[in-house]
Amino acid sequence: MAGSFAIRLAASTNEQKGSGPDLVAIRLDYVAKETGSNLVRNITLTLASVLTVAIALAFVGVSYLIGVGIEGSFGGLQSDVRMFVYMNPTATQDQIDSVRKALEKSPQVDSIVFLDQAETYKEFKRLFKDQPDFVESIDPKELPQSFRIKPTSTDSEVVSAVGKQFEDLPGVYRVEYASKLASDIKRSLDTLNGWITKFGLALIAVSVMLIFNTIRTAVFARRREIEVMRLVGASNWFIRLPFIVEGMVQGLIGAIVASGLTWSFDVLWKRNFVNQRGLDLLNNITWESSNLWIAVFTVLTVGAVAGAIGSGVAVGRYLRV
């Protein structure tokens, strides 16, 4: 008789299989209800996680905007670029190629970047975006193409000696040198912003750990339910999903707060510094609203992912199914 009951068991399990993967069978209202009650049950831990995520991601969002601003205000200046060789607008391709070869051969030149007319015009438009009439009046073809050069030495005397070698080459309009002060300022700002980013990233790691801990506590608080669920044959995902969603929700709420903070920073910065007199250093550091959207989108994504990682690890570790 055992055979016919084997069929009954097989049939009932096949029926489960036929209804699709476990995830689909889980009712959304169940997950929402469970997640909600878990979030409320652990309100202090949840708040700690959410606030840490918010602060961490606010640092990341703000440092991204400042980074974009620094790049923009220093005209794409790399802190190591010290020398510019501008070609005549009328320079032929042969002339450009021979200058490039001479630069590449020079032992005092570390690396070069060539900007053609299209790229130069793009940058020109960006630098003078406050003066559209002026931009209108310029034909891209009138703009000089240029090489940006990173010399092996940073000593300004050595650099200008190197530059002299190229001044008289055919097609060269003139050689210019980056102000050491500007480079140094940019380098300092880059460093400062780098630390803001690192601080934000470190805090993200802390957030993941806090979410991990919150979910671990939630798993522990619900161990009786979990035991019963296992006993009656709840699928693994049915047991796990509310916890993982809980972690993601914590990450997302934190990220939404961080987005708000980043947006406030955007508004305050632009109102107080940008295009104000007397703040020469800061008033050029600005960014497009598209950058703000990128920042917000990144913050939300990172928040959800951090939450999922933190809770996923906790569930994997402490929720044996």
């Binding site: 055992a2 055979g3 009951f5 084997a6 009954r8 068991l9 097989a10 009932s12 399990t13 489960q16 476990d22 296992r230 006993l231 009656v232 044959g233 709840a234 699928s235 693994n236 199914v321």
Partner: peptide
Amino acid sequence: AGKDIGSLPSYRVPYLR
């Protein structure tokens, strides 16, 4: 019920239960 439950993959265990 005729099935070797030791060889059941863990995701099938709930259906056994």
